[in-house]
């Protein structure tokens, strides 16, 4: 799924009306009217379910099935079952482990930096000041810019000779005036560059989520702490952080899942370059560019399982509904 969308789940708060009360207008399923509701319910959900099955669940089962075959894209070669061969050759492929290492480095560093910076920004904006609305609005801009576009913006800004970033660094005396350092093509700094782009794009979003968590902390809690003579630092560690933890946790898990499957941001800049290749790029190349549908599906299944575990962790943090 495209990262941007899961990043902004619009979720109105859980309603306060109880299940029982909400459905009191309806009769139980045993009456004729109740059976009618039941039929109508399924009838209305059915179109959505059919679409979801056709374009998501069925293809997922196909991916599982294909991962045990030697199927190629658009090929007339006879397909046969190869058992676990695709998985064993995947785990023996050094490039796969390079991609996995890159993905983990990217995920851990970008999510950590985003969480810390997001917290700083959220705490800053949490205080009342003139122009606060404008600052919050400006923070929606990086989030709304398409990922491909933000990669291109930074590609230009990080240009070796004419890029504005190098120019600023030179003015600040942080860089010698040779103007030739290319952050994106240089193997040692490419990962730093892509993490920086991701941090720019997502920190504001993280900050808005944390800010939402801060805003539900009642003000009198701080008054009490102030009366007790707690320092700002103590207030942060002993009150703010524990109270904002649920919001932070949800944001962290969403961001971790998104970072783990990162594709657009890096592919636009670096294509299949090994210094920044992620598991999604590795899988894409295997599936589409090498047409190795079977082998690529094994990698896809592995990614799915990793993200599935993260979703499982997430689902333990929220409750959908229990009748």
């Amino acid at each position: 799924m495209e990262p941007d969308i899961s990043a902004v789940e619009v979720r109105p708060a859980t309603p306060r009306t109880s299940e029982k009360k909400r459905f009191s207008a309806w009769s139980g399923p045993k009456t004729a009217v109740g059976r009618q509701q039941e039929r109508l319910g399924w009838l209305l959900v059915l179109p959505s379910l059919i679409v979801v099955f056709a374009v998501a669940i069925y293809p997922l089962f196909e991916t599982f099935r294909l991962s045990f075959t030697n199927q190629r894209l658009a090929s007339v070669r006879e397909v046969r079952n190869v058992g676990w061969e695709n998985y064993t050759s995947l785990f023996e492929d050094d490039l796969w482990w390079t991609a996995m290492r890159n993905t983990i480095i990217f995920t851990v560093s970008s999510v950590t930096i985003e969480a810390v910076l997001g917290m700083v920004v959220a705490l800053t904006i949490h205080s009342a000041f003139r122009g606060r609305g404008l600052v919050r609005t400006s923070m929606l801009v990086p989030w709304a810019i398409p990922t491909v576009v933000s990669s291109l913006l930074w590609d230009w800004m990080l240009n070796d000779r004419y890029g504005v970033i190098n120019s600023i660094f030179i003015r600040l005396g942080l860089m010698a005036d040779d103007r030739n350092f290319s952050w994106i093509t240089n193997r040692g700094t490419a990962m730093i560059a892509v993490v920086a782009i991701d941090v720019w794009k997502t920190t504001p979003f993280m900050a808005l989520l944390i800010l939402a968590g801060l805003q539900i902390i009642p003000g009198d809690v701080y008054e009490a702490a102030y009366v007790d003579g707690a320092s700002k630092w103590q207030q942060f560690w002993q009150m703010t952080l524990p109270l904002v933890k649920p919001a932070l946790l949800v944001a962290l898990i969403f961001r971790t899942m998104d970072s783990f499957r990162v594709f657009d941001l890096i592919y636009v800049l670096k294509q299949g370059s090994t210094d920044t290749m992620t598991v999604a790029i590795y899988t894409y190349q295997l599936l589409i560019q090498s047409s190795r549908l079977g082998a690529g599906s094994a990698a896809a299944v592995f990614i799915f399982v990793c993200i599935g575990l993260m979703v499982f962790g997430y689902s333990r943090l929220i409750t959908v509904e229990e009748n």
């Binding site: 799924m1 789940e9 399923p29 039941e38 109508l40 294909l66 899988t283 894409y284 993200i307 689902s315």
Partner: peptide
Amino acid sequence: HFRGRTVVLYLILSMTMFPAIAILGS
């Protein structure tokens, strides 16, 4: 109110976090 509603809701929720790369090939 209909039976299976909760299951459908969980299904839909898990679909919102679905990685595109997992179904790209198929």
